[in-house]
């Protein structure tokens, strides 16, 4: 079933991923090229530019005049604009699907994304925060594909995405009475990785998403470990407000790979310094992007 579902998810005409995400990720190690990508995109996408100006105003910069991409980047800072663009693009993409549970999906993804980015800044794993942000935002993306009518109809359940009319209405008439599709037995991590692979996202991200539920056996790349810890903290701190949030395991090898414990100094786990910042950032991200 996994392979069939994977093909159906990837073949979904609604799942057209925003190209800007890949362009940003491809230039992270080249400051000049990265800036060029931001300026080029903002200058050619006036709607996005307007949203970025709005985000700047909502972030306390409303007394400054922002008339072009140069003003925006200079005032807000390139790294924050890059982060806003990544989240805003993926938010618009997720919002376009409008299946009945997309808000819960996006709330959880956004919280995990912010948490992953903060962890990348805090730990010593050498992970670029933007890479952590995208991997964490997309760690459950297969679920978005599963719930589209394109796929869930196959499972006999409700499918709320309106193909060809994804902007209007949240659910099709009569959907509430239909059963939730049965996704038991579906490997969501593998499915999410498959979707990311089909979009041409970096192998690091695809592998990390595939390994997120098996952090003890994860590769040498700490990104998968970071996804695991970000998911644990999202639940532990109730960052997405989910009533069913539970924590059953925090992988010691994953913490070690991230430099959160052990190593030469025999460090003891200390996440207290980041709890306040993560909570505040998620609260603010919810205002901007939910």
């Amino acid at each position: 079933m996994n392979q069939y579902l994977g093909e159906r998810v990837i073949d979904n005409p609604l799942l057209v991923f925003p190209d800007i995400v890949s362009r940003i990720l491809a230039t992270l190690d080249d400051a000049e090229a990265s800036l060029g990508v931001l300026v080029d995109f903002l200058d050619n996408e006036p709607d996005v530019m307007s949203r970025m100006v709005l985000l700047a105003e909502q972030s306390g910069l409303k007394y400054f005049e922002i008339s072009n991409s140069g003003d925006l980047i200079s005032l807000v800072g390139a790294s924050r604009v890059r982060r806003w663009l990544l989240i805003d693009s993926i938010a618009a993409f997720a919002r376009g699907h409008r299946y009945a549970g997309w808000e819960d999906f996006w709330r959880h993804s956004l919280a995990t994304g912010v948490c992953g980015e903060e962890l990348a800044l805090y730990c010593t794993g050498g992970i670029l925060p933007e890479m952590a942000l995208v991997a964490s935002l997309l760690h459950d993306i297969g679920q978005l594909g599963l719930f589209s009518r394109h796929v869930s109809g196959y499972l006999g359940g409700r499918g709320d995405a309106r193909e060809g009319d994804a902007r209007e209405g949240d659910a099709r008439e009569g959907d509430a009475a239909r059963p939730e599709p049965d996704f038991s037995g579906v490997d969501r991590a593998a499915l999410s990785a498959l979707v990311c692979q089909s979009w041409g996202l970096p192998d690091r991200i695809c592998l990390a998403i595939r390994q997120q539920d098996a952090p003890d056996a994860a590769s040498d790349d700490p990104l998968g470990c970071l996804l695991h810890v970000a998911n644990v903290l999202t639940n532990a701190l109730d960052l997405d407000g989910g009533e069913e949030n539970r924590v059953t395991n925090l992988s010691s090898p994953a913490c070690e790979k991230l430099g959160l414990i052990g190593g030469g100094s025999g460090a003891r786990l200390d996440l207290m310094p980041v709890f306040g910042r993560i909570t505040a950032r998620v609260r603010h991200a919810n205002i901007l992007f939910l």
Binding site: V232, N235, A236, L237, D238, N245, R246, V247, T248, N249, L250, S252, C255, I261, R268, L269, D270, L271, M272, F275, G276
Partner: peptide
């Protein structure tokens, strides 16, 4: 109460889990 509910299925004999539990409890 909420933290204990979230960690109800956790193995707190695992030192890393125990530290996480303590820190989350203290913070929240």
């Amino acid at each position: 109460h909420r933290v204990m509910e979230i960690f109800s299925g956790a193995d707190l004999s695992n030192p890393v889990m125990a530290v996480l539990f303590d820190q989350v409890l203290t913070y929240r």
